[in-house]
Nucleic acid binder design. Structure first.
Lengths: 223, 223
DNA sequence: GTCTATAGAATGATAGAC
DNA sequence: GTCTATCATTCTATAGAC
């Protein structure tokens, strides 16, 4: 896969068109026209329309996952192997939210594409998301170290709810803005992250924001 | 629209096929074959494939919305015009969750169809969901009566997060079951509802489950 | 009014020339 | 590695039988 100008042009054109008009309304012919290449080039380079979409999505999502793990690692190192629960949750939902929300002007093509992927949830993207479980287990492990007294089931539900709020905010940002008549500021990404983290911490700790001093390091990665 | 055997057969076959195999994998030809009718009958009775999907979805979703409003009304009457916040939230997420989750054996075709609609989120269904805002305003109004001291923005976020947890649980139930290795019991619908309501109440009341005595009736439906 | 048979337009995929 | 030409399948539209 050396400097493929055609391949790159297809990827760029596809991401932009999908971001602007959604997966359902964009045909391969639209993409090749925008990229200035031949129709058959898509199948040659990617195999199928679905695989083109999959490639676009994995590229963006491994970047987000790496960011998440970096933040998680930093939080755990700072806490001597055991991160505060809010830092863990911030590492989980922060990169995704920062990547998708924010002032309209600054929304990159990549961001709009990921929003679209979150909303439309087309088959190739669902298949990739289903392989995300291993990635999430690392956060469960960190949560277990952070809240060793909490039952395991509660940890899973807490993680699940945190992701629920983050993804639903991305998916339904327009509806929330309309429902609230603009009163919910969806450009205040930092505020949204703190709101979601705060609720998730409450869900996990039962309302009392108990702050425990870092105890001895728990090295074993459970599971 | 008198006793349309053909029309009914199409609806039943379409709902079953979509529930089983998803919107992307089922063609109109599959549907008419299962229903034992002619291809053109779909366009005659519904106009297009999208309108057929829309009709299936609105039928099920007005049923859910009516159930929601009935529960809300009962809760407000019981409280003399002002319902407890947990009852309001239970009326919001209960019908949806009861309709979609539960023991596999008892999952009706309608339930599986609604899960599919929630996961795949195809254009005609998105269009209908976007008109759901007026329905949600009734819940915001009830929440305002229940928590008059809470800022309006917090109410919107609370409602938003409650819906987030409910819908995400439906959408990602399989992933949660896999992540938790079956430890999160997704057949315990009542337990899930209480979990979501509890977290939503905490999100709205700041962690302290304050229970205020019903004050004087607030009749005006704000907004 | 209700339904059938059939044709049309558009799409994703592929075979083979260059 | 790229392109032209073509295929099978899909949704949609219409003319006409019952």
């Amino acid at each position: 896969m050396p400097s493929d100008q055609t391949r790159t042009a297809i990827l760029a054109a596809a991401e932009r068109l999908y971001a602007d008009r959604g997966f359902g309304d964009v045909t391969l012919r639209d993409i090749v026209a925008a990229a200035g290449v031949n129709l058959a080039a898509v199948n040659y380079h990617f195999g199928s329309k679905d695989e083109l979409i999959a490639e676009l999505f994995v590229t963006r999502s491994i970047a987000t996952n790496r960011e998440r793990l970096n933040e998680l690692k930093a939080a755990e190192e700072k806490g001597g192997g055991r991160a505060d629960i809010d830092a863990i949750l911030r590492a989980l939902v922060g990169p995704t939210l920062r990547g998708c929300l924010g002032p309209d002007r600054e929304r990159s093509t990549a961001a709009r594409f990921m929003i679209r992927a979150s909303i439309e949830s087309v088959p190739p993207i669902r298949r990739i998301k289903n392989r995300e479980v291993d990635h999430l287990r690392k956060f469960v492990a960190a949560m277990r170290r952070s809240l060793p007294d909490r039952g395991e089931v509660d940890l899973y539900w807490g993680l699940h709810f945190a992701l629920a709020m983050a993804h639903h905010t991305i998916r339904e940002s327009e509806r929330l803005a309309r429902l609230s008549d603009g009163k919910c500021d969806l450009n205040d990404v930092a505020g949204i992250i703190e709101r979601i983290v705060a609720v998730s911490v409450m869900a996990l700790t039962g309302g009392a924001a108990e702050k425990k001093p870092a105890a001895k390091l728990v090295a074993r990665d459970a599971r």
